[in-house]
Design a protein around this nucleic acid. Structure first.
Length: 434
RNA sequence: GGGCUCGUAGUGAAGUGGUCUAUCACGCCUCCCUGUCACGGAGGAGAUCGCCGGUUCGAAACCGGUCGAGCCCGCCA
């Protein structure tokens, strides 16, 4: 029976069988160490028999092995146990050397990302890369667990759609049996419709953005967490839910994976349960006062301001997650709810210098939605929107939610420099493979 | 869409007019090595310096073009 590396400790003194990939060879003459990688980690195998060592001649890292041997406790071995008197069986021989290093950290310098992604299928076997995606997996697990606990239902909505969900943003167009279709750039309208069914819903799914953006924070296929909740008292209810979710997820990942985060050189976490809230106008004023650069006429936060306010809040409030509230009405989407002044009931959640989520309250009154739609130049009878309006005609409670970038969250938790490093197979303007 | 930068063995880097017949590290091959864990030691293979053209007695280096890539801005998650 196959034993996983992480479970070996319980089998000290017994004969065990492991299966995995050859991860590293160290030949010391009469003594050879090999590391075998399986889903639980690495196992050190000690081989003295020359014939057994010869089986590995010419075989490269990646060779699939079965190893049978006696498990002994050995303080000098990593993990405290190792296999002795091993008999090797080569399940799948590999003779080509890997195109990229597997047992040493890979270069994540921006100039080298192209090589990193070209060789992704093998490079991901590098334990440093693997750890990034294990942490990403944990982050999504924590998100799901938090939302289930708070009575949210996980949904799946179509990614092939009849029209743009959000006016303005660039969409991918494609032929759909003779009709023009687009790839969904957001589940926005569907998740709102589902508030009329379940009250509280969420989805973790790809969204497609055809923006011609070439930056460290953009990709054309993004994994979004979308949340929507009904029967809110006001915008504050949504902000609090998102805040509690993020606080829970961040503190939990640092608790449960602190060692791995440290190995990846992740920054120390500085957060408080209550994230500071500044209106956009306040941030412009503070930034202008502190730096002397006048941003009071900017509609949105500049990328420099996003970095600055997170640093500022970290120092002032001991919290590097911060809400920028009262976003300008001029930027508002037709389904957002306006305030009486020139702002909207919408906020950006910023963390470590980047926008990771937008958290608005929605306009739930049918007539107002139609009015705002027309004002945005959208035809309410278009098949991409008519069903959305039908749901509103039949009763939508006050509601709000968020769109949340899983890729950016992972990037920032680990302290990576580019969102693509947090994506297995990133898609951008230039890259469609692997 | 606008601006800036980069392209040298499989990988990461050094070299900014001649001493480059291109250097180093990792990886690979051969040999030595019984406690390695970025093992160590000796030797070896591997690059028409992205491509095309030009300047020059001479180009990896300078100029123009081209292809590829990255970063910033706009926009957004």
């Amino acid at each position: 029976m196959r034993i996983l590396s992480k479970d070996l400790k319980a089998y000290a003194g017994e004969k065990v069988l492991i299966q995995g990939w050859l991860h590293k060879k160290r030949l010391l003459g009469g003594l050879t160490f090999i590391n075998v990688r399986d889903r639980g980690g690495l196992t050190q195998v000690v081989i003295k028999d020359k014939e057994e060592v010869e089986k590995l001649r010419g075989l490269q890292i990646g060779t699939v092995l079965e190893v049978e041997g006696n498990l002994v406790e050995e303080p000098r071995a990593p993990g405290g146990v190792e296999l002795h008197d091993a008999t090797l069986t080569v399940m799948v021989p590999v003779t080509d050397e890997p195109p990229i290093e597997i047992d040493k950290p890979l270069s994540h310098k921006s100039d080298n990302l192209d090589t990193l992604f070209d060789n992704r299928v093998v490079g991901l076997r590098n334990l440093q890369e693997t750890t990034i995606f294990k942490i990403r997996s944990e982050l999504t697990r924590y998100i799901r667990e938090f939302l289930y606990k708070n009575d949210f239902v996980e949904i799946n909505t179509p990614k092939l759609v009849a029209g743009a969900a959000e006016g303005g943003a660039e969409v991918f167009k494609l032929d759909y049996f003779g009709q023009e279709a687009t790839l969904a750039q957001s589940p926005q309208l569907y998740k709102q419709i589902m508030v009329g069914v379940f009250e509280r819903v969420f989805e973790i799914a790809p969204a497609f953005r055809a923006e011609l953006s070439a930056t460290t924070r953009h990709v054309s296929e993004v994994t979004m967490l979308d949340i929507e909740m009904g029967f809110i008292k006001d915008h504050n209810d949504v902000l609090t839910m998102v805040q509690d979710l993020v606080y829970n997820v961040l503190t939990r990942v640092y608790e449960e994976h602190g060692d791995e985060l440290k190995k990846l050189n992740a920054p120390e976490l500085v957060v408080k349960p209550e994230f500071p809230r500044y209106t956009m106008a306040e941030i412009h004023a503070l930034f202008t006062k502190e730096t002397g650069k006048d941003t009071s006429k900017e509609i949105d936060l500049t990328p420099e301001e996003e970095k600055w306010i997170c640093e500022y809040s970290k120092k002032q409030n001991g919290c590097e997650a911060v809400f920028a509230t009262n976003l300008p009405k001029s930027k508002m989407k037709f389904y957002h709810m306006a305030n009486d002044d020139d702002t909207a009931r919408s906020a950006d959640l910023l963390f470590r210098g980047i926008e990771i989520s937008t958290v608005p309250q929605r306009e739930h009154r049918y007539e107002n939605v139609v009015t705002q739609m027309k004002a945005a130049g959208i035809d309410p009878t278009h098949p991409g929107f008519s069903h959305f309006l039908l749901a509103f005609k039949h009763g939508m409670p006050p509601h709000g939610g968020c769109g949340f970038g899983i890729d950016r969250l992972t990037e920032k938790v680990i302290g990576l420099g580019n969102v693509k490093e947090a994506i297995l197979f990133p898609r951008d303007i230039n890259r469609l493979a692997p």
